[in-house]
Simulated assay, not measured.
Amino acid sequence: MVRVTSIGFPNGRIETTKANNEMITLKDVAKRAGVSPSTVSYVLSGKKKVKEETRSKIYEAVKTLNYSPNKVARSLKTNSTNTIGVMVNNLSDMFFIDILKAIESTAYEYKYNVILCDAVNSEEREISNLRSLLGQRIDGLIFAGTGKNKKLNLDRLGIPVVTLDRSAGSGSGSIYVDNVKGGELATEHLIQAGKLPIALITYSTLISTFFDRMYGYRKTLEKYGLPYNEDLVVVTDFGTYNEGYNAVRELLKRKVEFQSLFAVNDMLALGAMRALVEEHYKIPEDISVVGYDDIPIAKLFLPALTTVSQPQYQIGRKATELLIRTINKEPIEEAEKSIVITPELIVRETA
Results as ranks from 00 to 15, higher is better:
I24E: 03
D294G: 01
F258I: 07
G158K: 07
L268H: 13
V234H: 06
E321D: 12
I84C: 09
L100T: 05
E230Y: 00
K151D: 15
L252V: 14
G244Y: 06
D155F: 04
M214G: 05
N265H: 12
A186G: 03
T16C: 11
M273L: 13
I346K: 14
E278T: 10
L345Q: 07
L252Q: 12
T326W: 00
R317Y: 08
V2R: 11
P284G: 12
R74T: 11
D93S: 15
K150T: 13
N246L: 14
Y217K: 09
E104A: 12
L130R: 02
S38T: 14
L196M: 14
T205L: 15
E321H: 03
Y59Q: 11
N70Q: 12
S38V: 12
V86K: 00
K48N: 10
A61L: 10
V62Y: 00
G140D: 10
E52A: 10
V4I: 15
I58F: 06
K329T: 07
E349Y: 04
E184K: 15
K148I: 01
L100M: 14
G244H: 08
I332K: 04
T83A: 06
R125T: 12
A298W: 02
R13M: 13
Y59I: 00
V277S: 04
T220G: 12
R218A: 13
M214N: 01
L300P: 00
R74W: 02
R13C: 01
N21L: 05
T220N: 11
E15V: 06
A168V: 05
G271N: 07
T240D: 03
D286L: 02
I97R: 03
S338A: 02
G291D: 11
V88A: 00
D294H: 02
S68D: 15
N20M: 04
R166T: 11
E230Q: 15
L152Y: 12
N129L: 11
L133T: 01
E230T: 09
D28S: 07
P331Q: 08
L196K: 14
K148M: 12
L141C: 05
L116P: 02
M23H: 05
H280S: 15
G239C: 11
G46C: 05
I142F: 05
A247F: 03
C117I: 06
T240M: 07
Y112W: 07
L130T: 08
K181N: 04
V2F: 07
Q192Y: 03
L345F: 12
L322E: 08
M1L: 09
M214I: 02
Y59W: 09
L345H: 08
K71A: 13
L130G: 06
A73I: 00
A269Y: 13
Y176P: 00
M23P: 00
S167A: 14
E279N: 10
V340P: 07
I198E: 13
I198S: 11
Y110L: 14
L226R: 05
N66H: 12
N179R: 03
A275S: 15
E257P: 03
Y110K: 14
P197R: 10
Q136A: 12
T64N: 03
E257L: 09
T81A: 13
D231H: 03
S128K: 15
L322S: 10
G135Y: 05
I138Y: 06
R3M: 09
L323S: 09
L100D: 02
K77F: 02
L302I: 14
E126T: 05
S172F: 01
T5I: 06
